[in-house]
């Protein structure tokens, strides 16, 4: 079992190591991170199990994005504090597509070091089909709508068949209707490919609707944790278990819940 302390080099043996490892894809132990005199993370602990969908909530500045960046290998972390097994990929709040490459060639870039030239195109087309963008393969990213661009970004993140998919508020810039469609799409893709997902969000309802487990980051560490009850299809906001969980999570975020369940969390 090879626990890599830094971002794993996604080499040709990536899939092999995936099969040989145990139950955990990401492990954070006592992680500290400060910027100047501001201590953002103060001993954060987090375990993400294989195939698990985890939502990480927190107020602005709680360090949730910092934690995600550590897991993505974008932020240097001391040895032993952050370890990720297998392949990781990230979808950010902005799609971050390269404007000078077509949609297809953007997705292809994620396979540059892992898949042979000849079989890339087929995988890319498969990934674009899964996000229903087959007709946009040869288009410049600049001509896509926000939702379409974010779907390309998802396809690019999934095409490398990651063990851990990190989602950094990927729906927050989308309009409400597109966001609902994206929730369904992410759920569907997660069920099909079973990567572990860490979704960083400030939207409590989104977290409860999508995740197996909801975490709240506060004061630089994981303050609270809940298993989300019920199957995803039964998680109606009116259901008393869901309503109660929602109140608890909001409470942990420092928001006094009211009876209106469809309001914005205000914890942006």
């Amino acid at each position: 079992m090879a626990l890599l302390t830094t971002r794993p080099k996604t080499g040709p043996n990536g899939s092999e190591s995936r099969r040989s490892v145990g139950d955990t894809v990401a492990e954070v132990r006592g992680h500290h991170r400060s910027f100047g005199s501001t201590h953002v993370l103060r001993g954060a602990d987090l375990t993400v199990r294989r195939g698990e969908f985890v939502a990480l909530l927190g107020r602005s500045g709680s360090g949730k994005s910092t934690l995600l960046r550590s897991l993505a290998g974008l932020d240097p972390s001391p040895k032993g504090e952050v370890s990720v097994t297998g392949r990781t990929s990230v979808a950010f709040q902005e799609p971050r597509l390269l404007p000078w490459r077509t949609v297809e060639r953007n997705v292809e870039l994620a396979l540059l070091n892992t898949v042979r030239d000849a079989s890339r195109s087929e995988k890319v087309r498969g990934a674009l089909a899964e996000v229903s963008l087959t007709e946009k393969t040869d288009v410049w990213p600049g001509s896509l709508s926000g939702g379409q661009a974010q779907r390309v970004s998802l396809a690019r993140a999934l095409v490398s068949e990651p063990d851990l998919l990190l989602l950094d508020e990927p729906f927050s810039a989308l309009d409400a209707l597109t966001r609902i469609e994206m929730h369904a799409l992410v759920t569907q893709l997660w069920e099909r490919h079973q990567p572990a997902i860490l979704l960083v969000t400030h939207d409590v309802d989104e977290a409860i609707a999508l995740a197996d487990r909801v975490l709240v980051l506060d004061q630089g560490r994981i303050a609270r944790e809940w298993q989300v009850p019920l199957r995803r299809t039964s998680r109606s906001p009116e259901h008393h278990q869901i309503a109660q969980l929602r109140d608890e999570v909001l409470g942990a975020l420092g928001v006094t819940p009211t009876n209106a369940h469809h309001q914005e969390t205000g914890a942006a």
Partner: peptide
Amino acid sequence: RRMTEAAVTMGLTRRQRLRHVVIPG
């Protein structure tokens, strides 16, 4: 910079980032 970051998360090496992100950018 966010483009370069995205390239890092895709596992692109420094040389590949130069070729695919920096020069065309």
